[in-house]
Design a protein around this nucleic acid. Structure first.
Lengths: 336, 336
DNA sequence: AAGAGTAGGTAACTCGTGTAACTTATTGAT
DNA sequence: ATCAATAAGTTACACGAGTTACCTACTCTT
């Protein structure tokens, strides 16, 4: 099943290409990177390209980065599970856009004991930029550490400008607030807020809860936290004990959790939206497949091309014009 | 919003640490890597550690890799959207396991024009291993290119041993076959197979279709390909024209597509499983939330710890004992 | 014929580490 | 007192690329 690997194959370097083409390494570099085009004659250029082709030469990004003083890596630290269908397609576009611009996007989903060790792990890779989907990663200490390791651009979505990083403003509290306002408008006064227990989601769950609290308090409604595992039995248990909670509505973190809970409600005969009004978030297709269809909250993410442009500019010049804040829009359907 | 960055901050190198501690670079390296422990006195060791701490020294993985001749990168090339809930948690565990063992897992989800350019992009990073979830990426040419670029281990799931790569055997055709057998057992004779149109999924969709074909033909059932976008309208259109197709059952690629289509069926009054029996795959929670509950096919993936061990061994010794093939199990529920 | 350009190319340095080979001072054995 | 062994360092090179400064041969001008 494993390979023999007896013939530790020779990896061709630019020196090999130079030797085969009968020129110096410098010339090879000039040709392959198309720098100083007038320095190399047509004949020589062709010889070099032919040699590179013949040897299947692949540049050594590590060596290049060392010399250049920076990599072309854009690091996206994110737990895989936090990427729902909401961002996966978008992230893939970003990959492509940045690839066109000469950057390599890599995602890194490690769990770390603390922020500092995470930041150190990122810094070791010497990415040229770090693109964080959640804000709380960029504390001042982390920012300093990363900057000093040579990271050129820190990009994040956050509720308030993050010092030392380029911030696209968006407060997840707005999602919670929009949900709460809507529920109160529909006459609900006792709002349950589903808190997912999955690792990596609290980054979004907490501000969403905060938003619900803020809006609810302002309108005289009560808020109750409701922890929920992403599992059938957990939802069933919650539905079983639901009447004791005295709640008339739920904001369910996102549409996935909403769907899970709605099923449990329906299984025990709790009427949605009659007894309980439900709001999800992220406006996933899943939500529209529910009956009643889920009221949800749509996030309008900036087009990935625009983000890629901004990031590039940020890397190259250290600054970029601000992007408009992200917005959230409530989409009312049948569950409220 | 952007930072000033006037003070291009000095990144501390091991030379800086050496200078501050009043020792040579070699000594710093010995201390920080804990190589040759008896070579350095306790006093000196402490001075070095203190200096490193004070300067917030972060090793330069790029330089280290260049010197070492290989990186500690494990590359997981995968389109983000192909990672459903099925593998995301597992992948995260793998991250952690390999991190403990000194490796850095990065996912790279770029779309490439062709396999060759993808392989070149991977080779440039000089990963020490590549972990592919789908097989068709490792053609002989790609394997050769990667090997020559210094990749130590190629790991993949595939239907048959891939020359030059360590293969955990699993044929996605088995999923399709299991579905088809089950449907025929339940008396169905005309099977539709949903073909998702999303990028990156054809790698799994095609062998699953093949499996359905194989089993169906052997049992005298017919198979019809049914393309389907992951969108509400597409499903509605399909359901509208369903009767013309003359099918009595569907294998829906996975539970997500099954849920989408089942909803469309129910909206137009097609009874499941009465008129159409449905089988999904991947055994997602989502499937158990449907009514009727979705019959699905569970994949038993090897524990990530075991995979991490095997991969490490493969990197270090070039060979590793074979792992048992993955298995697929049909979970019968109410939709068939 | 002398001088100035220029086309085409190369030698040599650099990036930050890890390590093999060498050095020196001190201790221990005889 | 002498020699060997060891402890505790250091020096110097390699990894693979990009780039600056230099070199040589040729052409053109006057």
């Amino acid at each position: 099943m494993a390979d023999d690997k007896l013939t530790e194959p020779h990896r061709a370097t630019s020196a090999d290409v130079a030797r085969l083409a009968g020129v110096s390494r410098a010339t090879v570099s000039f040709v392959l990177n198309a720098t100083q085009p007038q320095r190399v004659s047509q004949r020589t250029r062709e010889r070099v390209l032919a040699a590179a082709e013949q040897l299947e030469y692949v540049p050594h990004a590590v060596a290049r980065s060392l010399r250049a003083g920076h990599t072309n890596l854009v690091l996206v630290p994110t737990s895989v599970s936090a990427i729902g269908r909401l961002v996966s397609g978008w992230l893939e576009d970003l990959h492509s856009e940045l690839h066109r611009l000469g950057y390599t996007v890599v995602m890194h989903g490690g769990r770390f004991a603390d922020l500092e060790s995470a930041a150190r792990a990122w810094a070791e890779m010497r990415p040229t930029a770090i693109f964080a989907l959640a804000e709380e990663r960029f504390t001042p200490e982390v920012v300093q550490l990363l900057r000093r390791s040579g990271v050129r651009a820190l990009f994040t979505y956050a509720a308030a400008p993050v010092p030392g990083a380029y911030t696209v403003l968006f407060d997840h509290a707005e999602i919670g607030a929009a949900a709460a306002e809507h529920l109160v408008d529909r006459g609900r006064r006792n709002i349950g807020v589903v808190m997912p227990q999955e690792r990596g989601l609290e980054v979004f769950a907490k501000p969403r809860l905060t938003g619900v609290r803020r809006a609810a308090v302002a309108r005289g409604a009560s808020v109750t936290e409701v922890p929920l595992d992403y599992a059938e039995e957990a939802a069933a248990d919650l539905a079983d004990g639901w009447s004791k909670l005295g709640l008339d509505s739920v904001f369910a973190y996102n549409d996935e959790y909403a769907a899970l809970l709605m099923r449990a409600f329906q299984d025990v005969g709790i009427d949605v939206p009659g007894e309980v009004a439900m709001v999800g978030a992220d406006d996933l297709l899943l939500g529209r497949l529910q009956r009643p269809r889920l009221t949800s909250i749509r996030l309008d993410v900036p087009p990935s091309r625009l983000i890629a442009q901004t990031l590039t500019q940020l890397i190259e010049t250290g600054t970029a014009p601000p992007l408009p804040p992200m917005t959230a829009t409530l989409v009312a359907r049948e569950s409220t």
